[in-house]
Write a protein that binds this DNA or RNA. Structure first.
Lengths: 324, 324
DNA sequence: GCCACGAATGTTAGCGCTACCATAACCGAT
DNA sequence: ATCGGTTATGGTAGCGCTAACATTCGTGGC
């Protein structure tokens, strides 16, 4: 930067201004500085800038995983909005391990990220304490609570589970099955389903809880376990679309007709849900919008704007397709 | 940090050492410092550390996209290896726009990332110049070239295309079709296929080039276009599994028998490729290993180890399943 | 008892920027 | 001619750490 300043015949601070707020520099000076930058190949050191200004222009995001997953779209949406505003995304994946979130959050805070996006509303007390102490904007996502750490963008997993349950019951199914991972949001979906079932006399629900971080294969295995029962469920609700599609494929393979012999529903409305045959009934939750909105809330805060309300319920929509 | 030092009755540098190389601090001192850290809730400022040590412990990764994509697994593998070593991942997505890579690289270099991972081997001259000037370890991925910028982890897309082509020809198909996105690696796969076709008298190949960044829907549309021809291809090779699965689903819907009426093959071997019916023939390329290996090469360099050879050809494997 | 040596800790001087305040030059209004 | 206000630019002092080089102290060998 000193070289650039010398070459352009100005002081360092003017170079700094030319880069960050070109409007405040005289056009002629600006041109000289730009020429000098080009000639020297100068790349501003944003680390030094962050230290001096105590704003890093980095946002940390913690998600369970991004492969064949509903969270990939959230990260995508977030990343696009942030990049357009000149912010960068520091990505951390927990693989559904609770302690991983804690250490990621600590690492991100050490980097002095300007804001943080978390998945879900269940965090260790230490994490919550650290985030509050850091006094940076935080957005929790993919769930709903009345008392978020700071801001929240999501929907009610419980209500979504209940809505899907009512859909199945309305179609006449009475013996229901549920398959989900051992994680908070999956459990909420089950709780909603169970509540819907409790409202209908004679309706029952059987539950399989798998390890967290499930995929197609697990869905196949789960549906097989149901089909082997003397009295299998008539309709099965899977905690995510990957599980449901695995199950759907297994049914196709075995000649189990969907939905006549076994109805199947998923969750999250991945692109592929609409493409399989029969098309998968699922709950659309706007994965991408969650990411975009979370990023927008952060940007608003960075620019000093008030964010109200701090809780954004993006809702959900039961998408009834041929599989139920 | 000053507070911690005062509380523990040591100098700042000892606190710094206690955090970074605890073995070099006397156990009793270490214990006092750790207690002081806990009492004060001190979180080391890694930005300041980066500036002072000129090592950021951040790696930048540029991928086209991470949703329902082959690159998600690469990012996942990379991220896990890096996090285990105390490095963080700064993620950038280009959405297949060429200029996006350039600006991401520039932003990452401004952050003084310790290393960089790029997708593919085609980069703008400006990007290459900048990367060389930065003199940091760089890994290119997902393709092969004799002259990488620095290191490379991938496989030959051309050879993979050719191998898949030979597989189709060996099964007796003569009128082939190819559908791929308008991007470098897809074109290489086509070039390989075309070469294989050229070796067999009477064999032909018809090509559809779509916009880059394709998904299920585009596969469906593409297969329809082929099926409407007076003499459709007998076998169709799709540049990625998502396209192929879209096509497969469309065939199922239309009663087009796969592979009897139309054989279908994909590329990359996503988890779902093995799950659909009929199971999808595809080319397995170790998406995740690419990420892991790229991360390992970077770590080796960070630790000052020599990396030889600098080109890692991870190969590929034609996975012949029921769809061809 | 002296010295060389390694282990433990400290001092100093930045890393490369930006915040903050100051200064200079120029403008039109009085 | 004087003045307040605006625009353009500069000087100084850090931001919170760590590299590099001291310094101190205890230990064992002779």
């Amino acid at each position: 930067m000193e070289d650039v300043a010398r070459l352009a015949g100005v002081s360092m601070i003017t170079v700094s201004r030319a880069i960050r707020e070109p409007a405040k520099v005289a056009p002629a000076t600006l041109a000289r500085i730009e020429a000098a930058i080009r000639r020297t190949g100068y790349v501003p050191n944003l680390t030094a800038g962050s230290l001096a200004s105590s704003r890093s222009r980095i946002v940390g995001a913690v998600v369970p995983t991004i492969d064949n997953s509903i969270f990939a779209e959230t990260v995508r949406g977030m990343s696009e909005v942030l990049e357009a505003a000149g912010y960068q995304l520091l990505l951390g994946q927990t693989a559904y391990r609770a302690d991983a979130e804690d250490s990621l959050v600590q690492a991100f805070l050490g980097r002095r990220v300007d804001g943080m996006v978390l998945t879900g509303i269940g965090h260790s007390p230490a994490t919550v304490r650290r985030l509050r102490a850091a006094a940076i904007p935080v957005v929790e996502t993919w769930d709903l609570t009345a008392r978020p750490i700071d801001m929240l963008v999501g929907f009610s997993n419980r209500d979504a589970g209940a809505a899907l349950g009512r859909h199945l019951l309305a179609r006449g199914y009475r013996r229901l099955g549920f398959v989900g991972g051992a994680e908070e949001r999956g459990r909420s979906r089950y709780a909603g389903l169970a509540a819907a079932v409790a409202d209908v006399p004679g309706a029952t629900v059987l539950r399989q809880e798998l390890a967290a971080g499930t995929s197609y294969k697990d869905g196949r295995a789960a549906i097989l376990r149901f089909l082997e029962l003397p009295e299998p469920p008539q309709a099965c609700f899977f905690g995510n679309d990957a599980l449901a599609i695995g199950a759907l494929m297994e049914c196709a393979r075995r000649g189990v007709r969907v939905p006549q012999d076994m109805a199947i529903a998923g969750f999250a409305d991945l692109d592929i849900a609409a493409e399989v045959t029969p098309a998968l009934t699922t709950v659309h939750v706007g994965s991408r919008q969650i990411g975009e909105e979370a990023a927008r809330l952060l940007l608003a805060r960075f620019e000093g704007r008030r964010v109200a309300p701090r809780i954004r319920d993006l809702g959900f929509r039961v998408v009834a397709r041929a599989s139920t």
